[in-house]
Amino acid sequence: MAAKKTSKTNVSKDDLLHYYREMLLIRRFEEKAGQLYGMGLIGGFCHLYIGQEAVVVGLEAAAEEGDKRVTSYRDHGHMLACGMEANGVMAELTGRSGGYSKGKGGSMHMFSKEKHFYGGHGIVGAQVPIGAGLAFADKYLGNGRVTFAYFGDGAANQGQVYETFNMAALWDLPVVFVIENNQYAMGTSQQRSTSSAEIYERGRAFGIPGEAIDGMDVLAVKAAGETAVAHCRSGKGPYILEIKTYRYRGHSMSDPAKYRTREEVQKIREEKDAIEHVRDLLLTSKHCSEEDLKAIDKDIKAVVNESAEFAKQSPEPALDELWTDIYAQAEA
């Protein structure tokens, strides 16, 4: 982990509370998803975001309305952070008609045109050129929007990432490449899979500026996000943020995570946890009492429990949905 965490700050109470709520929502949501998976209500692959919450929450705080985002299959946190409803996300996880994709996409494939969330992509690295393409469209249309293209340290070794860096730099595309470095590409540590220690430095070969950020510090992420967004929005082309983070759970629900020690995970949870960090800030700055935070925890739990209930009660898609949405009909 890089820099020391922000301890004193001039961030407002409202902002801190907002980050706290958002991160806590993601964590509780993911814990619930893990539980529903264990009950057999969620099937297939399910990749939890627990531990990485500060990344999306910090960057969403730097985004403006209309900015776009696209990510990999570890996408639940991104959806909640950009304002998609917990009910719709959870119901998609259970494959029900109330899900964002009517139950036809699943954990890895969800979208929201309304919230400018362009997936949810199951193929490692594929979202990187897609993100640059969204930025290409924005530049073409001249609408001043910026796209966040999230990918992991594992995807950072995909060839298409560098094809995309090249074109994004060549064409000055307004895209922030967000490398969520959680240090393990499934079960392979960065040391064993990646030739360079600082992945963001790879942008230098293409003339793309970048920096490494402590991803367990939501304020640091937000500040870096603001720098990156300002760079992109001013027409200077892409920017790389390598956000050093950590995933507490396995790669997916079926991963026993034997490639790292329990102690390693425990140490980070105890010393680095992003939610605890903001909680400390709220308490030490006397913005909140323990009681206030408990009330928030209760609210969040209620939202998550409601989403689980919704996801159980929402009917399975009608059988004729099998045959819909394969082709779009031309507008008359």
Binding site: A132, G133, Q160
Partner: peptide, 16 residues
């Protein structure tokens, strides 16, 4: 080809 096909798909998602 891999990269620019992906960029074009993104551009199509983005309204072009």
């Amino acid at each position: 080809e891999h990269g620019f096909a992906g960029i074009a798909v993104g551009a199509a998602f983005g309204g072009l």
